[in-house]
Amino acid sequence: MLLSDEQINSAQKVIELSLNASAKSLSYFTKTAVDVVIENKLTVINLSNVENLVEKEVSSYVISTELIGDLQGISYLHFTQNDVDKLMDSIYANKEFDEDKYVKKSEGLVKEIANIITAAAMSQFANHFRYTTYGDVPRLEIIKNESKSYVANYIERHNCFLDFRATLVSSEMNLNLDFVWFVDDSFVGGIDRLNN
């Protein structure tokens, strides 16, 4: 599907606003300023090559959230172990956990962060597009190089041909979270509602 310049301009403005809302939410957890570095404001992707679009790094956490309702798609946040450790320090300063408890707490924390910052962007999209949209319960996946990821499978199955992505950066904490979205033509429908 080709998008007009008007559709692309409108989409990029809403994407920027939405990702800024996510950054603001993340700053509650980091207790620092969080900037949005937008790497890709909107691209039509080649679905035959989708595996290469989903970043793969062993021992990193990928939290994906499926969008439910009027807007269909999937988003994911990519946390390295360094990101997780920094966030744990920020939230649980001065608390000590044994290894099992630390892993359990880390997973609970990153899932909740993903839930909140994804919903912050989703709420902006919903308000602008006059849509009702939910995010499903976040799903944690430790990506393995040898297997096709859950996200890649979802993108193919649901024909999510639009991609936008950014990095949420706290320079003070040396935190860099990749935040990636794949959406289907319901996103274009939302842009058209916005323009009409």
């Binding site: 939410s25 509650y28 912050a120 709420s123 919903a126």
Partner: peptide, 27 residues
């Protein structure tokens, strides 16, 4: 208590018997 801050949802919470709608994150 929800991470979703959609205007439409916040506007209608009283219809379900909910006394207050608090959007995450919060202190």
């Amino acid at each position: 208590i929800s991470a979703l801050g959609q205007d439409e949802m916040i506007k209608n919470y009283e219809d379900y018997g909910i006394e207050y709608y608090l959007v995450k994150p919060f202190t």
